[in-house]
C-alpha cells in the first residue's frame, strides 16, 4: 500500500477504523511511514470532536425580521432603510467634501477659499466607503459576476488615481488644486459604490 491509498482510506474512515480487507496492509504501511501515522493520529483525534459538534447554533438574535424585510413582494416596495441610511451618511460626507471643492472652483483663486481639512475629510470618506462596501456585500447576490468585475475594474481605476493624487499632495502639501483632485477621487469612489448599491437593491 502506498501513501495515496492510505490517505484515501483515512479520508473515508476518518476515525481510522479501516475495514478488514485492507486493514492489514494499512497497518503495515503505517508501521513504516511517519507522515501517514501522523495523519491517522490527527484523524482519530479530530473525528470524535467533530461528531460531538452541535448540528445547530442559533444565531445570537432573531434574523427573521430582517429577512422578511428584505424579501418583500414584487408589487410592494422593499424598505431600503439600511442602504438608504448608509447612502445618506455617504452623501453627507460628499457634501462636506464637495462644497469646499465647489467653493474653490467658483473662486478660481487658491488661498481665497477656506482650505479643506484633508485628514478629517479623508476619514469621512473612508468611513462612508467602508459602510457602502459592507452594504454592497450584503446585496451581492443581486449582482452578476460581470457587474462585480466591472465594479472592481473601475474601483481599481479610481483607487490608482487616488493613490497618485495623495502621493503628489504629500510632496506638495497645501496645494489647493491637488487637494481638489484628491477629494474628487474620493467623491467618485463613493458615488460609484452608491450607484452599485442602488443597482443591487430590489424594488
Amino acid at each position: 500500500m502506498n501513501c495515496e491509498r492510505a490517505r484515501e482510506l483515512l479520508d473515508r474512515w476518518p476515525a481510522g477504523l479501516i475495514p478488514a480487507g485492507e486493514a492489514e496492509a494499512f497497518d503495515q504501511h503505517l508501521a513504516g511511514c511517519a507522515a501517514c501515522r501522523e495523519d491517522r493520529a490527527a484523524a482519530t483525534a479530530v473525528a470524535p470532536a467533530v461528531a460531538a459538534l452541535p448540528e445547530r447554533i442559533e444565531p445570537p438574535r432573531d434574523l427573521w425580521p430582517d429577512v422578511r424585510r428584505r424579501i418583500g413582494r414584487p408589487l410592494r416596495r422593499t424598505p431600503r432603510w439600511r442602504t438608504m441610511g448608509l447612502a445618506a451618511a455617504a452623501a453627507i460626507a460628499l457634501v462636506a467634501g464637495s462644497s469646499a471643492v465647489t467653493l474653490h472652483f467658483a473662486r478660481g483663486r487658491p488661498g481665497v477659499a477656506t482650505a479643506p481639512r484633508i485628514p478629517a475629510i479623508e476619514a469621512g470618506y473612508a468611513s462612508a466607503t467602508a459602510d457602502l462596501l459592507r452594504a454592497l456585500d450584503a446585496q451581492r447576490s443581486h449582482l452578476s459576476p460581470a457587474t462585480i468585475a466591472t465594479l472592481e475594474r473601475n474601483l481599481a481605476v479610481i483607487d490608482a488615481a487616488i493613490a497618485e493624487s495623495r502621493a503628489a499632495l504629500a510632496s506638495d502639501p497645501g496645494n489647493r488644486d491637488l487637494e481638489a483632485l484628491l477629494l474628487a477621487g474620493y467623491r467618485q469612489k463613493v458615488a460609484l459604490l452608491q450607484q452599485a448599491t442602488r443597482l443591487a437593491e430590489r424594488s
Partner: peptide, 9 residues
C-alpha cells in the same frame, strides 16, 4: 462664465 479644468496628468 467661469470655465475650470483640473486634471492630474
Amino acid at each position: 462664465a467661469t470655465v475650470t479644468v483640473r486634471t492630474f496628468k
